[in-house]
C-alpha cells in the first residue's frame, strides 16, 4: 500500500486505506521524537516551504519540526513580511516559489480552495494546512492518531464535537475522517453555529450539549471562530460559555474517563474550563505531540518518486 497522490488537499478525497497508511507511518515516525538525536536522513536534499496566510503556532511549528527531523530544508514564509503585502496574487506567489523548485509547499489560506489552485498549477506537492472554513486534513489525521493511540481502536467509538461546527474546518475534516473509519459522530452547539443539513454529513446534531456528550468516548471542543462570524451569530461569549462550555460538572455527567480533545488554541473559561483542559483525561498536549509524527509521515509519503513522472 502506497499513497498514490501528489497532494493532500482534503480528507474527503482520501480512501480509508490511505488514512490508515498515514496513521501507520506516523506511528513509526513517533519513535524518532524519543531519541536523543532527533534526525533521520530520509528527506535529505528535499525542500519544504511553509506558506502561511493566517496566523498559526502549532501547525506551522509542527510542519517545520517534522521537515527538519526528516532532514529536509524548511523555509517559512509569513505573508505579512512578504511580497503579498505589495499586492502579489496567490498564483504569482506560487509560481515564484515553484521557480525555486521546492518539493512540498504547505499552505494555510483564508479562502476555501486556495490550496487546490496551487495544486493544479505547481509541480510541488501541496499540503492543505487549513483553507478558510473548508478543511484542515492534517488536524483530523492527528486527532484520529491520538484517539487510536489512547483507545487502541477507532471503529465503533462515539465522538461528540461541541462548538462552532459550521465555521470549523477542523470539524468538517474530522467528521469526514471519523465517518470513514467507522466512528459515530454527534455535533452540538448553538443553532446558529450548527450545520444546516447534518444528515448529509452523516452526523446527529443537537443544541443540548449534555445530551451529545452523555455516552461519548471522546469529547472534542472547538474554539469559537469569532473572526469568521457575522454580528448576529452569538448574543455573548458569557452566554455561550454557560450553555455550551465544558465544565467539570458537565464532564461528571458524561462517561467515566471520557477523553477530552481540543485542536487549540484554547480560550480558557469560554469553551473549556481550565480544570478540564488540564485534567487527567485531557489529550490536548498529546494532540500537539502527535501532530509532528503525522506531518512527518505525510511529508515522507508525499515525497516519493511521482515528480519525475510529470
Amino acid at each position: 500500500m502506497t499513497l498514490k497522490r501528489k497532494d493532500l488537499l482534503t480528507i474527503r478525497e482520501l480512501e480509508p486505506e490511505e488514512i490508515f497508511l498515514i496513521l501507520e507511518t506516523a506511528d513509526s515516525m513517533k519513535e524518532i521524537a524519543s531519541r536523543e538525536i532527533k534526525k533521520v536522513p530520509a528527506l535529505r536534499g528535499k525542500t519544504v516551504i511553509n506558506l502561511f496566510y493566517e496566523p498559526s503556532t502549532r501547525t506551522r511549528t509542527s510542519f517545520e519540526i517534522a521537515g527538519k527531523w526528516l532532514s529536509a530544508d524548511v523555509v517559512n514564509i509569513s505573508t505579512s513580511a512578504s511580497s503579498v503585502t505589495k499586492g502579489e496574487s496567490l498564483l504569482d506567489t506560487g509560481k515564484t516559489l515553484q521557480a525555486m523548485h521546492p518539493d512540498v509547499v504547505v499552505i494555510r489560506h483564508p479562502v476555501p480552495g486556495a490550496p487546490k489552485i496551487l495544486a493544479d498549477r505547481l509541480q510541488a506537492s501541496i499540503i492543505n494546512a487549513g483553507d478558510g472554513a473548508h478543511e484542515h486534513p492534517t488536524q483530523a489525521l492527528l486527532d484520529l492518531f491520538t484517539i487510536r493511540e489512547r483507545l487502541g481502536r477507532l471503529e465503533g467509538l462515539k465522538v461528540a464535537i461541541v462548538g462552532d461546527i459550521s465555521h470549523s474546518r477542523v470539524a468538517r475534516s474530522n467528521i469526514q475522517a471519523m465517518r470513514k473509519v467507522g466512528i459515530e459522530v454527534r455535533v452540538a452547539g448553538p443553532a446558529t453555529l450548527l450545520p444546516r443539513f447534518p444528515e448529509q454529513l452523516g452526523v446527529e446534531a443537537t443544541t443540548d450539549v449534555e445530551d451529545a456528550i452523555a455516552d461519548a468516548d471522546v469529547i472534542m471542543m472547538l474554539r469559537i471562530q469569532r473572526e469568521r462570524h457575522g454580528p448576529t451569530m452569538l448574543p455573548s461569549l458569557r452566554e455561550y460559555s454557560r450553555l455550551f462550555g465544558l465544565t467539570v460538572e458537565r464532564v461528571k455527567k458524561a462517561k467515566e474517563g471520557v477523553l477530552i480533545m481540543h485542536p487549540g488554541p484554547i480560550n480558557r473559561g469560554v469553551e473549556i474550563a481550565p480544570e478540564v483542559a488540564d485534567g487527567p483525561y485531557s489529550l490536548i498536549l498529546d494532540q500537539v505531540t502527535n501532530g509532528v509524527a503525522i506531518r512527518m509521515g505525510l511529508l515522507y509519503l508525499l515525497t516519493g518518486g511521482q515528480r519525475t513522472e510529470r
Binding site: T2, L3, L21, T25, M29, G304, G305, Q306
Partner: peptide, 23 residues
C-alpha cells in the same frame, strides 16, 4: 531496527517503501 528512512534509494524509484517501527 527499521532502516527504511536510511535507505540510499529513497525517492529515486517509484513510491516510498513502508516505514516500520524501530523498537
Amino acid at each position: 531496527l527499521d532502516i527504511t528512512l536510511y535507505r540510499d534509494d529513497l525517492g529515486k524509484a517509484g513510491r516510498q517503501p513502508a516505514v516500520r517501527k524501530t523498537e
